[in-house]
Nucleic acid binder design. Structure first.
Lengths: 347, 347
DNA sequence: AGAGAGGCCGCAATCGTTTGCGTAGCAGAA
DNA sequence: TTCTGCTACGCAAACGATTGCGGCCTCTCT
């Protein structure tokens, strides 16, 4: 208030344009909006456009939102931007959104339900037209409530039990099938699984896929060889591997729930002087950046992050335009990228 | 679900609260706002608050923005979220912003001036109250124009020539001094510098600091031993090192402009069968994540990303509250983290 | 020539808040 | 009692756009 200048000095409004063009603001509005342009005479439309151009008029999205209850904005809710999995997805989302004239509001929940609820509330009060959610848990009261309220959303990577929502994710089954096949081809038969949190759909899907893949190869599906991580993190991966090692179980390879869990294994290898891949092979999941420069470079299953984000955005735009359309889900094909963390078993 | 309505079914407005409390909306508004609450009788204020509470009233930020030309939102403009340097900074920004009741709008410019201009324009039209800018180049017409127009901003990591703006960055001088001292202590004397883009203040600062450090140690400051990278990227780092190697210059260590450039060196080492650190030592800058798991683990100078973000946000909040305050800049102290990419020179 | 039909456009309300201004009411002072 | 001053509140005008409704004008058809 001390400073009268806020962000802008003074910006031309619709009235200015109308005045310059010699028409009523309503007419100017109609002329400027391609949707309603047919309602005004082509000649006056031209005049208005010229006036807008010459003034450098930019419609005020706030005023527009207030009137139309729309915002050309969607909310993107992710657990943590710091997890390298998410930035590429976000970029994918943004890129298709902006070409469609939309914007993305990004929020981090830190896996905290209270925080998540507050953030979503704040997004809604900003009239976002939909949500792209990457934080889904299998039990997720907030998301079912939002769904019941008719909030448009699409899920990324994970789903919630019993909720029919559009979603896009990597094909987990195919991904771990690839991993297991690779290890089996190398000669491994005692393979362990460091599963992601079983409270997330991805966690259980990959674990189930792991069992199936083992069976398909005629290998024993030993429950003692899979241990669950509480979070998708390095430290939890390390914890899980230590636990497994301490049981004295025998195994020559581990397929990790994701790359972070796999990297957690590296820490344990260092602690206990285990040689990877000589003594134990590891394969990750997600192909996060810089894996090729790790020690050893991590074999992992690559998923098209950027495309997943883009596809999610497209799905959301679809449901915004056609709310009644039946929810469809898309699975993106993964591929295995073999590096130096996997090799033939020693014996 | 068959609900054509947008995000919200129907949300209580200020009028509803006022009606329930039996007062005029103006009074309700004043009662709800702590700033103006003293203007209304304590008893009626209580009534209003209770009404608001019972309705679950949430003020509509859009309407408020329209009226007040404020938004409790600041824009954060970064080059690319995918660069692991930025997520922690963004988190730092967000965390102090939200505790102050503000929100952050994040945009990626991809180092494209046109894109940047459009994005900033869109931020301004959304009435952001200030900008946190991490894309500054030494010559940056857009930023000087914004500054002239009185847009509040603070710079992160980089500055623009001749512009007095609040900024927060790591102490580059101290950082490279640390690196060089470390290498000299190991016995290196022929040290090369793979400089960042000289169009950015950080690029020239670190290069200058490198020269000074060399001189301080009584070592020759050989211009042939520093080569500039066009971008802060792996590929540019690789390019620069190849160029340097191809000149036949002699050196046993390189201090890289940042971690990505250093990692680019790793690629060249692999290409040409160079052993690091046996033949060449490398030190990076920034301490991006997972460096400890690289091959070899990269010695680098660590800077407090999260705190830098937080400090930037605080600075911006300061200038929002006290626009006339003289711009201050803060330098954060770096520290060297020694890993396995540096060792005594072979001969 | 008169009537009906559209095409164009202006009027004014509206979205939900904030805020300058005016005023009713009341207390205290003269 | 009358006047002053203050507190507490209501009125209404904004902020900048969108949009239903209605009216004018012109054109066409009979």
């Amino acid at each position: 208030m001390a400073d009268p200048r806020l962000v802008r000095v003074t910006t031309p409004t619709l009235r200015d344009v109308a005045q310059l063009a010699g028409v009523h603001p309503a007419t100017a509005s109609r002329a400027l909006n391609p949707q309603t342009r047919p309602l005004v005479n082509a000649e006056t439309a031209r005049k208005v456009l010229r006036a807008a151009e010459s003034l450098g008029y930019q419609p005020n999205p706030i005023a527009r939102s207030l009137k139309t209850a729309r915002s050309s904005t969607v909310g993107v809710v992710i657990p943590d931007l710091t997890n390298p999995l998410f930035p590429p997805i976000v970029r994918g989302i943004e890129d298709v959104l902006t070409t469609a004239g939309y914007n993305a509001w990004i929020v981090n929940t830190d896996n905290d339900a209270g925080r998540e609820e507050a953030l979503v509330e704040s997004l809604r009060s900003r009239q976002v037209e939909g949500l792209i959610v990457a934080t889904a848990r299998r039990e997720h009261p907030l998301l079912v409530r939002l769904h019941d309220q008719g909030v448009r959303m699409v899920l990324v990577n994970r789903k919630v039990d019993g909720l029919e929502l559009p979603s896009v994710a990597a094909d987990d089954d195919a991904g771990v099938a690839l991993s297991v096949a690779h290890l089996v081809a190398l000669g491994h038969s005692r393979i362990a699984h460091l599963a992601g949190p079983q409270g997330t759909s991805t966690g259980v899907n990959r674990a189930r896929a792991f069992r199936h893949a083992m069976i398909d190869h005629g290998l024993p599906d030993d429950p003692a060889l899979t241990v669950e991580c509480g979070y998708w993190s390095e430290s939890e991966g390390a914890l899980a591997l230590r636990k497994l090692l301490d049981t004295g179980a025998e195994f020559t390879a581990v397929v990790a729930g994701n790359d972070l869990i796999a990297l957690g294994c590296y820490d344990v290898f260092a602690e206990r002087g285990i040689e990877c891949p000589l003594q134990i092979s590891v394969v990750g999941f997600n192909e996060m950046p810089f894996l090729d420069k790790m020690r050893p470079p991590l074999t992992t299953v690559a998923i098209p992050h950027y495309e997943i984000g883009g596809e999610a955005a497209r799905l959301l735009l679809d449901t915004i335009e056609e709310p009644e359309r039946h929810p469809r889900s898309v699975l993106m094909a993964p591929s295995l990228v073999v590096r130096a963390s996997t090799a033939r078993p020693a014996r």
